[in-house]
Design a protein around this nucleic acid. Structure first.
Lengths: 191, 191
DNA sequence: TTTATTAATTATCCAAGGTTAAGTTTTATA
DNA sequence: TATAAAACTTAACCTTGGATAATTAATAAA
């Protein structure tokens, strides 16, 4: 299980066997049950997460309605904005399934970076990768219709449709659940 | 002029006078004319930019139509995706006004980081700040109507309305120029 | 200053998402 | 297993944005 973390890191930087052992030894892995909340609105986050198994969702509540902002599945990492800004979180993070998650903390990060300084490069590289990916996703979102976004999601993350309730996919796509239902009907009768 | 760069850096990390001098000495400042292109689609970017004066726009072309993705004004920095990915750029970067811009290159960055290692922290911090800001903007975009986005832009970046043609603001807001024109009419007759 | 080009507006028609409410299906739980 | 709760669907009505085309305004170029 810990090897998934090593593999993730090796996508960005080289890691000797000895260094991999250090990372392995310092990883904290926890299990969560479906619907467990990793972080609530208003809380200060001191952890970041790496999904080993399961599916996690980030969302916020506006006018009483949940808006899903992202789904995270195996081998994806979550660094809550709150951890960076030191402000109370605007977002919830909760488990859509039973999950196994590696939890990183600021203190342990400092110790790890002390021992393996090049981990700084990992942070730099992965952050900017995420930044660029988000930018592309945002730009696409702007110029595509909801139906195009639906098809794009089907193409790129088909697994979500088996793991996630439709009303959460709807707000993720920037539309209402009612509208998504109607759209699916429209698409299915089209062919 | 160079001091704007120093001030920007000091928002993220401390810098001694000696270090500030090093940064100042190694900065390359260039002037550009309105409509000058800093980067074209298909090109490989080896530079990043810090706007000292003027306004710069990033956009891409899809189905023959320009889609503006961001406006950058004084004291904002641009790190093109292409510079990170080493892939040809999907985006154009062009000057909306006569501009004064500090240009950073990969080679000079390496030398600078060699001399001032803590600049790595600057990169880490500013990257993640941008990432989080983009995430919030994206989430807001999804849950707001075009009209709400228009008002939000008016509130947060009123200067753009004096510097940028409306049809470019329109695609930035994710709508067509025709639609923006109609919306403005609707808003003005509402009160 | 005239002319050409580009930007912005306006109108018409259409497609599609938002809202609300009712009904159905599925899932969870007592 | 029966009951309650949650998820999903469907329908009706309304609003608003997209597409197209024509017109006017503003800007740039000859």
């Amino acid at each position: 299980m810990e090897d998934k973390i090593i593999q993730f890191i090796k996508r960005y930087i080289d890691l000797s066997d000895a260094e991999a052992d250090i990372v392995r030894d310092s990883s904290h892995i926890e299990s969560f049950k479906k619907n467990d909340i990793l972080l609530s609105e208003g809380e200060y986050s001191k952890n970041h997460y790496f999904i080993l198994k399961g599916c996690v969702r980030t969302y916020y509540i506006i006018d009483g309605n949940e808006k899903t902002t992202e789904f995270y599945t195996e081998n994806q990492s979550i660094v809550p904005a709150s951890m960076v800004t030191k402000e109370p979180s605007e977002y919830f993070i909760s488990c859509l399934e039973d999950c196994t998650i590696a939890i990183g903390s600021e203190e342990r990060d400092l110790v790890l970076i002390e021992r393996i300084p090049k981990l700084k490069n990992l942070i730099m590289k992965s952050d900017i990768q995420v930044r660029i990916h988000n930018q592309v996703m945002f730009d696409n979102f702007k110029s595509k219709t909801p139906e195009m976004r639906y098809h794009f999601l089907l193409d790129t993350r088909p697994d979500l449709f088996n793991r996630v309730p439709l009303h959460q996919l709807a707000t993720y796509l920037g539309i209402t659940p009612v509208s998504l239902s109607r759209m699916r009907k429209r698409i299915s009768t089209k062919r």
